[in-house]
C-alpha cells in the first residue's frame, strides 16, 4: 500500500465543490506573504502604485 501524501494547503480543495473549483496558494506563495524582506519590497511598490492612482484621481 502506497504511503499517504498530505499537502496541508491542498486539503481545503476537498471540503466542498466551490473550493475545489478555485485556486489556493501553495506553501511558497503563503511564505512570501509573511516574508518581511519581500513584503517590504512589495510595500514600497504598492505605495508607489497607490500614490500614482491617488495623483491620477485628483
Amino acid at each position: 500500500m502506497s504511503e499517504k501524501k498530505v499537502v496541508e494547503e491542498e486539503i481545503n480543495f476537498q471540503k466542498n465543490d466551490a473550493f475545489n473549483l478555485t485556486m489556493i496558494p501553495g506553501a511558497f506563495a503563503r511564505k512570501m506573504r509573511t516574508c518581511v524582506i519581500w513584503q517590504f519590497i512589495r510595500f514600497v511598490i504598492i505605495n508607489v502604485k497607490m500614490i500614482i492612482v491617488v495623483s491620477k484621481s485628483h
Binding site: Q39, R42, F43, I46
Partner: peptide
C-alpha cells in the same frame, strides 16, 4: 490586488 503583510502595514 495582492495579499500580504505589506497591505497590512499600509
Amino acid at each position: 490586488g495582492e495579499i500580504g503583510l505589506a497591505g497590512h502595514w499600509i
